[in-house]
Design a protein around this nucleic acid. Structure first.
Lengths: 350, 350
DNA sequence: ATGAAAGCGCTAACAG
DNA sequence: CTGTTAGCGCTTTCAT
């Protein structure tokens, strides 16, 4: 009868706790206690050693699935980002991974492409998979979507985003300060007619940067022509190009643009180019985020640097705190942005 | 006694199959059958409907952990890449994710930074987590590391890499053809003294591209000066710069470089710049991969385009085939590269 | 200090 | 067609 095809999962039956226990000549319960850091003190030292050795010898690997079923913890954390192909989020995820991995957690990573439906589905899928917590970089300012799906007392931390009411712990950059940095730089270069093309106002990074921009401009006595203000539907090159084309089409003069982020800045460069305007000779452009390769672009992009990796790492730490049962409340960790001056900005053409 | 702090996993006890069964007035076994596509035909239609409704009403979400423990399948696939921050791999992962997600699989993604120790650890961790299969973009030409760790009959597919003996199913690009495309282009531009700075020869992409380069050169009657050949320790900007500096330092004249990949090409640009050589006026540079933003670089990079997303998607499909029990054997799927001419190449200075 | 036994949530073999 | 039973691999009372 052999040769009958079995389900064949590919693995030659894994060694289980019982195998270890048998080899060590103890009861599985004892083996479990010996193998577990926490409970090891409960067991005779010599016995423990025997169990450890048996485990070693059999190359025993505990099955976290089984453990999770019992303990109701999966040692898994869900990470939800708009798009991994955006180098900003890739970097943030690396930061998260490094911290969580070290603590024995595995990541479930997923992209939403900023589609709320997809986001909801992904949250639910992760919930079903029993993740112990969520780290989200997709959140809208109004975090109801998340809260509704995962419930009020799920462990959630936001990265590179904040909720309006600060109800969710978050690690982000001080967008207001970042925008001010950009404005200050342009003003120093002699620019007065500065446009701001912001990201979607549903996102904290879209709205707050605009608020910072507006505040900085008014504090420096520069009125902002509303015609020099617009916001995109997404933080993408295509959307950056679109709003920039609109801006140019309005015929209102301007000598500089503060873009919602680097990708939008890239779109602006395209639109300017199409219109025969050169950067920085005719129009200066400032981005936001300082994504990898920003220094390689043509021209190298002046932009507001944010500590990508650090945002992720700090977010990971925050999640670990929560996972350990700490009450982080509605902690908001704001990291500092920094202006990086490169070649997409120049003195205003007078 | 209430108020005693319990483990508090954050979730208010999830609704289980028993709850559904109770509400529908059936035995949990029946509920299970009704809920499962596969086994639904086994149960009375009316009963099934009742169960489905109960499930709906309670917002029941099956617990895949528990299911997995029983069925010995986790519906999870491990994805191992060198570095998600490399836009090439981010794109490949998106391709994988789209296919697998659609089929109900969840991804465990991890980076190795090309560290074999880390790679081994990650494979083991995923194995412990009971993944149903592995998709690896990290594999060395000698795949022993993988095979040793996961065993001979684990389900593995390689993406953007191949094993020397073709023992592992793989989705990759025809590196040989890609390299030939690059050489043909340069020769047409009048270049004769062409250098090749390849990636690590431990990786198929490092070696095969070099072989293609060599073959193309000799077929076209151009001898290759061994002094114009070198290989790096990693596919990175830093390594590209290093080998290019070495190349320049050797004092052997050359007018063009075929770089192991785009990142190395970027490093070459840096090294050329340091040496006061301009690209493309003095030296032409061709990359490989056509990573996102390659068209934005200074100068826009002439490079061999490969279908990133498609590699991932096809790899995902291949994995799904295996997961469904198909015998894919040692199938090697080779996708076609395409030369994209931009501004980092120009006619040879005579 | 250790063994016994129950059970996490689910599926599957077996009855009926 | 449906209920019963057992058990996936592990942890955790409860005894002893």
């Amino acid at each position: 009868m052999r040769g009958m095809s079995e389900p064949d999962t590919g693995a030659s039956r894994a060694v289980t706790l019982r195998d270890v226990a048998r080899l060590a000549g103890v009861h599985p319960g004892t083996a479990s206690r010996a193998l577990n850091e926490q409970t090891r003190p409960l067991v005779n030292e010599a016995t423990a050693r025997r169990v450890l050795e048996a485990a070693e010898q059999l190359r025993y690997r505990p099955n976290p699935i089984a453990r999770g079923l019992k303990t109701n913890r999966s040692h898994t954390v869900g990470v939800i980002v708009p798009d991994l192909m955006n180098p900003l989020f890739a970097a943030i995820v690396r930061g998260i991974e490094d911290r969580l991995d070290r603590a024995g957690y595995t990541l479930l990573i997923t992209n939403t492409d900023n589609d709320p439906d997809r986001e909801r589905i992904q949250f639910e899928a992760m919930l079903a998979r029993q993740v112990d917590g969520f780290i989200a970089a997709t959140a809208q300012r109004d975090h109801r979507l998340i809260t509704e799906v995962v419930g009020p007392d799920a462990k959630v931390v936001l990265v590179n985003r904040r909720a309006d009411d600060n109800a969710l712990p978050a690690v982000a950059v001080d967008d207001d300060r970042g925008a001010r940095l950009a404005v200050a730089h342009l003003i120093e270069l002699g620019h007065r007619r500065i446009a701001h093309l912001s990201g979607p106002h549903l996102l904290s990074t879209g709205l707050r940067r605009q608020q910072g921009f507006l505040a900085a401009m008014s504090e420096r006595g520069s009125d902002v022509d509303p015609k020099l203000l617009d916001s995109s539907h997404a933080f993408t090159e295509a959307e950056g190009a679109r709003v920039c084309r609109d801006l140019i089409g309005r015929g209102v003069p301007f000598t500089a643009i503060v873009a919602g982020n680097d990708l939008m800045a890239l779109g602006c460069l395209d639109a300017l180019d199409e219109a025969g305007l050169r950067c920085p000779q005719d129009v200066s452009v400032v981005g936001f985020n300082d994504i990898p390769f920003a220094d390689r672009f043509r021209p190298p992009l002046t932009t507001v640097h944010i500590p990508h990796y650090q945002i992720g790492a700090t977010g990971g730490d925050l999640m670990l705190d929560m996972l350990r049962g700490a009450d982080v409340g509605r902690r908001q960790i704001l990291l500092d942005p920094e202006l990086v001056v490169r070649e997409s900005t120049a003195p205003a053409a007078s």
